[in-house]
Protein backbone atom coordinates (compact mmCIF):
# COMPACT_ATOMS: atom_id res chain seq x y z
CA UNK A 1 0.00 0.00 0.00
CA UNK A 2 1.58 3.27 -1.06
CA UNK A 3 0.74 6.73 -2.21
CA UNK A 4 1.27 8.16 -5.65
CA UNK A 5 0.41 11.66 -6.74
CA UNK A 6 -1.80 12.22 -3.74
CA UNK A 7 -3.72 9.01 -4.43
CA UNK A 8 -3.66 6.09 -2.08
CA UNK A 9 -3.13 2.80 -3.84
CA UNK A 10 -4.56 0.13 -1.60
CA UNK A 11 -4.55 -3.61 -2.01
CA UNK A 12 -7.43 -5.26 -3.81
CA UNK A 13 -7.71 -7.77 -0.99
CA UNK A 14 -9.47 -5.11 1.07
CA UNK A 15 -12.27 -4.81 -1.45
CA UNK A 16 -15.52 -6.66 -1.85
CA UNK A 17 -17.10 -6.81 -5.29
CA UNK A 18 -20.90 -6.64 -5.34
CA UNK A 19 -22.55 -6.99 -8.73
CA UNK A 20 -26.31 -6.86 -9.20
CA UNK A 21 -27.84 -7.48 -12.61
CA UNK A 22 -31.47 -6.67 -13.40
CA UNK A 23 -33.60 -7.30 -16.45
CA UNK A 24 -35.97 -4.59 -17.72
CA UNK A 25 -37.74 -7.37 -19.62
CA UNK A 26 -37.80 -5.17 -22.73
CA UNK A 27 -39.64 -2.42 -20.94
CA UNK A 28 -38.42 1.07 -20.10
CA UNK A 29 -38.31 0.65 -16.35
CA UNK A 30 -35.33 0.73 -14.02
CA UNK A 31 -33.87 -1.14 -12.39
CA UNK A 32 -36.20 -3.99 -13.39
CA UNK A 33 -36.27 -7.53 -12.04
CA UNK A 34 -33.20 -8.81 -10.24
CA UNK A 35 -31.78 -11.75 -12.20
CA UNK A 36 -28.27 -12.33 -10.89
CA UNK A 37 -26.41 -11.23 -7.78
CA UNK A 38 -22.81 -11.52 -6.70
CA UNK A 39 -21.65 -15.11 -6.47
CA UNK A 40 -24.66 -16.63 -8.20
CA UNK A 41 -24.23 -19.07 -11.07
CA UNK A 42 -24.55 -18.07 -14.73
CA UNK A 43 -28.09 -17.77 -15.97
CA UNK A 44 -27.64 -18.88 -19.59
CA UNK A 45 -28.98 -15.49 -20.63
CA UNK A 46 -26.05 -14.05 -22.61
CA UNK A 47 -26.85 -10.43 -21.83
CA UNK A 48 -27.14 -11.11 -18.09
CA UNK A 49 -23.93 -13.12 -17.90
CA UNK A 50 -21.92 -10.77 -20.13
CA UNK A 51 -22.99 -7.78 -18.05
CA UNK A 52 -22.05 -9.63 -14.86
CA UNK A 53 -18.64 -10.57 -16.27
CA UNK A 54 -18.00 -7.12 -17.77
CA UNK A 55 -18.80 -5.28 -14.57
CA UNK A 56 -16.55 -7.74 -12.76
CA UNK A 57 -13.68 -7.26 -15.21
CA UNK A 58 -13.92 -3.49 -14.79
CA UNK A 59 -13.95 -3.78 -11.01
CA UNK A 60 -10.92 -6.09 -11.20
CA UNK A 61 -8.82 -3.78 -13.35
CA UNK A 62 -9.42 -0.84 -11.06
CA UNK A 63 -8.98 -2.88 -7.86
CA UNK A 64 -6.07 -5.11 -8.77
CA UNK A 65 -4.03 -2.71 -10.87
CA UNK A 66 -4.88 0.69 -9.40
CA UNK A 67 -6.03 -0.20 -5.89
CA UNK A 68 -9.43 1.40 -6.42
CA UNK A 69 -12.45 0.15 -4.52
CA UNK A 70 -15.18 0.29 -7.20
CA UNK A 71 -16.36 3.31 -9.18
CA UNK A 72 -16.43 5.73 -6.29
CA UNK A 73 -13.39 4.18 -4.55
CA UNK A 74 -15.73 3.51 -1.67
CA UNK A 75 -17.20 0.12 -2.48
CA UNK A 76 -20.15 1.21 -4.62
CA UNK A 77 -22.33 -1.64 -5.87
CA UNK A 78 -21.88 -2.45 -9.56
CA UNK A 79 -25.42 -2.38 -10.96
CA UNK A 80 -26.56 -3.10 -14.50
CA UNK A 81 -29.93 -3.47 -16.22
CA UNK A 82 -30.07 -5.57 -19.40
CA UNK A 83 -32.86 -6.01 -21.95
CA UNK A 84 -33.73 -2.32 -21.62
CA UNK A 85 -36.46 -1.29 -24.06
CA UNK A 86 -37.21 -2.79 -27.44
CA UNK A 87 -34.39 -2.88 -30.01
CA UNK A 88 -32.64 -0.18 -27.99
CA UNK A 89 -29.26 0.34 -29.68
CA UNK A 90 -27.30 1.95 -26.91
CA UNK A 91 -25.62 1.41 -23.55
CA UNK A 92 -25.36 4.14 -21.00
CA UNK A 93 -24.26 5.14 -17.53
CA UNK A 94 -26.88 7.26 -15.79
CA UNK A 95 -24.80 8.19 -12.79
CA UNK A 96 -25.97 5.28 -10.69
CA UNK A 97 -26.02 2.21 -12.87
CA UNK A 98 -25.40 0.82 -16.34
CA UNK A 99 -28.21 0.28 -18.83
CA UNK A 100 -27.92 -2.03 -21.85
CA UNK A 101 -30.19 -2.38 -24.84
CA UNK A 102 -30.48 -5.55 -26.86
CA UNK A 103 -29.81 -3.80 -30.18
CA UNK A 104 -31.96 -4.62 -33.14
CA UNK A 105 -29.91 -7.60 -34.35
CA UNK A 106 -29.56 -5.91 -37.71
CA UNK A 107 -27.38 -2.87 -37.13
CA UNK A 108 -26.50 -3.24 -33.46
CA UNK A 109 -25.77 -6.40 -31.56
CA UNK A 110 -26.69 -6.62 -27.88
CA UNK A 111 -24.75 -3.96 -26.00
CA UNK A 112 -23.16 -6.38 -23.56
CA UNK A 113 -21.20 -8.15 -26.28
CA UNK A 114 -18.16 -5.86 -25.96
CA UNK A 115 -16.43 -5.89 -22.60
CA UNK A 116 -14.74 -2.55 -23.27
CA UNK A 117 -18.17 -0.89 -23.50
CA UNK A 118 -18.68 -1.63 -19.82
CA UNK A 119 -15.19 -0.42 -19.00
CA UNK A 120 -15.87 2.73 -21.00
CA UNK A 121 -19.19 3.58 -19.37
CA UNK A 122 -18.10 2.80 -15.83
CA UNK A 123 -15.00 4.95 -16.33
CA UNK A 124 -17.32 7.92 -16.84
CA UNK A 125 -18.30 7.20 -13.26
CA UNK A 126 -14.67 7.09 -12.15
CA UNK A 127 -14.09 10.48 -13.81
CA UNK A 128 -17.11 11.90 -11.97
CA UNK A 129 -15.54 11.00 -8.69
CA UNK A 130 -11.90 11.77 -9.49
CA UNK A 131 -11.87 15.11 -11.28
CA UNK A 132 -12.93 17.79 -8.84
CA UNK A 133 -15.57 18.88 -8.24
CA UNK A 134 -17.92 16.91 -10.53
CA UNK A 135 -15.86 15.38 -13.31
CA UNK A 136 -14.62 16.74 -16.60
CA UNK A 137 -17.21 19.06 -18.13
CA UNK A 138 -19.07 17.21 -20.86
CA UNK A 139 -18.48 19.63 -23.72
CA UNK A 140 -15.72 20.63 -26.14
CA UNK A 141 -12.18 19.65 -25.13
CA UNK A 142 -12.94 18.63 -21.51
CA UNK A 143 -15.81 16.54 -22.88
CA UNK A 144 -13.57 14.95 -25.49
CA UNK A 145 -11.04 14.17 -22.75
CA UNK A 146 -13.88 12.59 -20.77
CA UNK A 147 -14.74 10.38 -23.75
CA UNK A 148 -11.10 9.58 -24.46
CA UNK A 149 -10.29 8.54 -20.89
CA UNK A 150 -13.38 6.31 -20.96
CA UNK A 151 -12.13 4.71 -24.19
CA UNK A 152 -8.62 4.29 -22.79
CA UNK A 153 -9.76 2.42 -19.69
CA UNK A 154 -12.40 0.53 -21.66
CA UNK A 155 -9.58 -0.82 -23.81
CA UNK A 156 -7.46 -1.54 -20.73
CA UNK A 157 -10.32 -3.55 -19.18
CA UNK A 158 -10.37 -5.70 -22.31
CA UNK A 159 -6.58 -6.04 -22.42
CA UNK A 160 -6.46 -6.97 -18.72
CA UNK A 161 -9.15 -9.58 -19.07
CA UNK A 162 -7.36 -11.11 -22.07
CA UNK A 163 -3.87 -10.81 -20.58
CA UNK A 164 -2.67 -8.77 -23.54
CA UNK A 165 0.35 -6.52 -23.86
CA UNK A 166 0.16 -3.24 -25.78
CA UNK A 167 1.42 -4.81 -28.98
CA UNK A 168 -1.04 -7.71 -28.72
CA UNK A 169 -4.10 -5.53 -28.18
CA UNK A 170 -6.49 -4.60 -30.99
CA UNK A 171 -7.16 -1.12 -29.49
CA UNK A 172 -10.75 -1.28 -30.74
CA UNK A 173 -13.78 0.05 -28.90
CA UNK A 174 -17.03 -1.80 -29.42
CA UNK A 175 -15.76 -4.76 -31.41
CA UNK A 176 -18.75 -6.91 -32.34
CA UNK A 177 -21.21 -4.21 -31.38
CA UNK A 178 -22.02 -3.15 -34.92
CA UNK A 179 -23.04 -5.82 -37.37
CA UNK A 180 -21.01 -5.54 -40.56
CA UNK A 181 -18.42 -3.15 -39.12
CA UNK A 182 -15.26 -4.00 -37.24
CA UNK A 183 -15.82 -1.65 -34.33
CA UNK A 184 -17.14 1.70 -33.21
CA UNK A 185 -13.77 3.38 -32.69
CA UNK A 186 -10.06 2.59 -32.84
CA UNK A 187 -7.34 4.14 -30.68
CA UNK A 188 -4.71 2.83 -33.07
CA UNK A 189 -6.36 4.30 -36.18
CA UNK A 190 -9.04 6.78 -35.17
CA UNK A 191 -10.15 7.23 -38.78
CA UNK A 192 -11.02 3.53 -39.10
CA UNK A 193 -14.07 3.08 -36.89
CA UNK A 194 -17.73 3.58 -37.73
CA UNK A 195 -17.42 6.72 -35.63
CA UNK A 196 -14.47 8.10 -37.65
CA UNK A 197 -12.29 10.51 -35.69
CA UNK A 198 -9.31 12.82 -36.18
CA UNK A 199 -5.91 11.70 -34.90
CA UNK A 200 -4.17 15.10 -34.99
CA UNK A 201 -4.93 18.63 -33.83
CA UNK A 202 -4.79 19.93 -37.41
CA UNK A 203 -7.97 17.90 -38.05
CA UNK A 204 -9.76 19.02 -34.87
CA UNK A 205 -13.46 19.39 -35.63
CA UNK A 206 -15.16 22.58 -34.49
CA UNK A 207 -18.84 21.78 -34.18
CA UNK A 208 -21.80 22.48 -31.96
CA UNK A 209 -23.12 18.94 -32.42
CA UNK A 210 -22.61 16.23 -29.80
CA UNK A 211 -21.65 18.77 -27.12
CA UNK A 212 -18.89 20.16 -29.28
CA UNK A 213 -17.83 16.90 -30.88
CA UNK A 214 -16.96 15.04 -27.71
CA UNK A 215 -17.12 11.66 -29.48
CA UNK A 216 -15.20 13.02 -32.47
CA UNK A 217 -12.23 14.91 -31.08
CA UNK A 218 -11.60 12.24 -28.46
CA UNK A 219 -9.70 10.52 -31.27
CA UNK A 220 -6.77 12.90 -30.71
CA UNK A 221 -6.02 12.05 -27.04
CA UNK A 222 -7.01 8.44 -27.79
CA UNK A 223 -4.25 8.18 -30.35
CA UNK A 224 -1.76 9.89 -28.03
CA UNK A 225 -2.45 7.20 -25.44
CA UNK A 226 -2.00 4.43 -28.00
CA UNK A 227 1.32 5.92 -29.16
CA UNK A 228 2.62 6.31 -25.59
CA UNK A 229 1.51 2.81 -24.56
CA UNK A 230 3.04 1.05 -27.54
CA UNK A 231 6.27 3.01 -27.23
CA UNK A 232 6.58 2.10 -23.55
CA UNK A 233 5.66 -1.50 -24.34
CA UNK A 234 4.58 -4.30 -22.00
CA UNK A 235 1.18 -4.11 -20.33
CA UNK A 236 -0.36 -0.74 -21.19
CA UNK A 237 -2.15 -0.59 -17.84
CA UNK A 238 1.18 -0.49 -15.97
CA UNK A 239 2.90 2.27 -17.95
CA UNK A 240 0.74 4.74 -19.82
CA UNK A 241 -2.38 3.48 -18.02
CA UNK A 242 -0.91 4.21 -14.59
CA UNK A 243 0.22 7.66 -15.75
CA UNK A 244 -3.23 8.50 -17.11
CA UNK A 245 -4.98 7.16 -14.00
CA UNK A 246 -2.81 9.10 -11.57
CA UNK A 247 -3.21 12.26 -13.64
CA UNK A 248 -7.01 12.26 -13.35
CA UNK A 249 -7.31 13.92 -9.92
CA UNK A 250 -4.74 16.52 -10.93
CA UNK A 251 -6.71 18.15 -13.73
CA UNK A 252 -9.56 20.62 -13.51
CA UNK A 253 -13.09 20.15 -14.80
CA UNK A 254 -12.32 22.56 -17.63
CA UNK A 255 -9.03 20.94 -18.66
CA UNK A 256 -8.02 21.38 -22.30
CA UNK A 257 -5.98 18.81 -24.22
CA UNK A 258 -2.83 20.86 -23.55
CA UNK A 259 -3.51 20.89 -19.80
CA UNK A 260 -4.09 17.15 -19.63
CA UNK A 261 -1.03 16.45 -21.77
CA UNK A 262 1.17 18.61 -19.54
CA UNK A 263 -0.10 16.82 -16.45
CA UNK A 264 0.53 13.37 -17.93
CA UNK A 265 4.10 14.40 -18.68
CA UNK A 266 4.55 15.69 -15.13
CA UNK A 267 3.13 12.44 -13.76
CA UNK A 268 5.42 10.37 -15.98
CA UNK A 269 8.44 12.29 -14.73
CA UNK A 270 7.38 12.02 -11.11
CA UNK A 271 6.77 8.28 -11.36
CA UNK A 272 9.55 7.18 -13.67
CA UNK A 273 12.05 10.07 -13.76
CA UNK A 274 13.10 12.75 -16.19
CA UNK A 275 14.46 11.33 -19.46
CA UNK A 276 13.00 7.91 -18.62
CA UNK A 277 11.45 5.85 -21.40
CA UNK A 278 8.02 6.79 -20.06
CA UNK A 279 8.84 10.51 -19.94
CA UNK A 280 10.03 10.52 -23.54
CA UNK A 281 7.23 8.26 -24.80
CA UNK A 282 4.53 10.49 -23.32
CA UNK A 283 6.10 13.70 -24.66
CA UNK A 284 6.61 12.18 -28.11
CA UNK A 285 3.07 10.78 -28.21
CA UNK A 286 1.48 14.17 -27.57
CA UNK A 287 3.81 15.82 -30.11
CA UNK A 288 2.77 13.29 -32.74
CA UNK A 289 -0.88 14.33 -32.36
CA UNK A 290 0.04 18.01 -32.57
CA UNK A 291 0.31 18.91 -28.90
CA UNK A 292 3.79 20.13 -28.06
CA UNK A 293 4.86 20.27 -24.43
Amino acid sequence: MFAQGGRRLATALEFEKNRIIYSAENRYRLPGVRVRSEGQAPTNDSAVDEAYDGLGATFDLYAEVYGRNSIDDNGMDMVGTVHFGRNFGNALWNGRQMIFGDGDGEVFNRMTVAIDVMGHELTHGVIQYDVPPNGLEYANQPGALNESIADVFGSLVKQYSLGQTADQADWLIGEGLIIGAEALRSLKDPSAGLDSQPAHMRDYVNTSKDNGGVHTNSGIPNHAFYLAATEIGGYAREGAGLIWYLTLPLVSAKAQFQDFASQTLATARRLFGVNSLEDEAVGDAWAQVGINL
Binding site: D72, M76, G89, N90, A91, L92, W93, N94, G95, R96, F108, M111, V117, H120, E121, H124, Q128, Y129, N134, G135, Y138, N146, A150, G174, L177, L184, D195, K209, D210, V214, H215, T216
Partner: peptide, 13 residues
Protein backbone atom coordinates in the same frame (compact mmCIF):
# COMPACT_ATOMS: atom_id res chain seq x y z
CA UNK B 1 -23.89 8.56 -6.00
CA UNK B 2 -24.85 10.69 -8.94
CA UNK B 3 -23.07 13.88 -9.77
CA UNK B 4 -22.91 14.03 -13.56
CA UNK B 5 -25.21 11.48 -15.09
CA UNK B 6 -25.77 10.29 -18.63
CA UNK B 7 -23.20 8.99 -21.02
CA UNK B 8 -23.96 6.79 -24.04
CA UNK B 9 -21.59 4.51 -25.95
CA UNK B 10 -23.23 5.12 -29.34
CA UNK B 11 -22.88 8.83 -30.11
CA UNK B 12 -25.85 10.77 -31.50
CA UNK B 13 -24.09 11.53 -34.80
Amino acid sequence: LCRNPFHCIIPPN
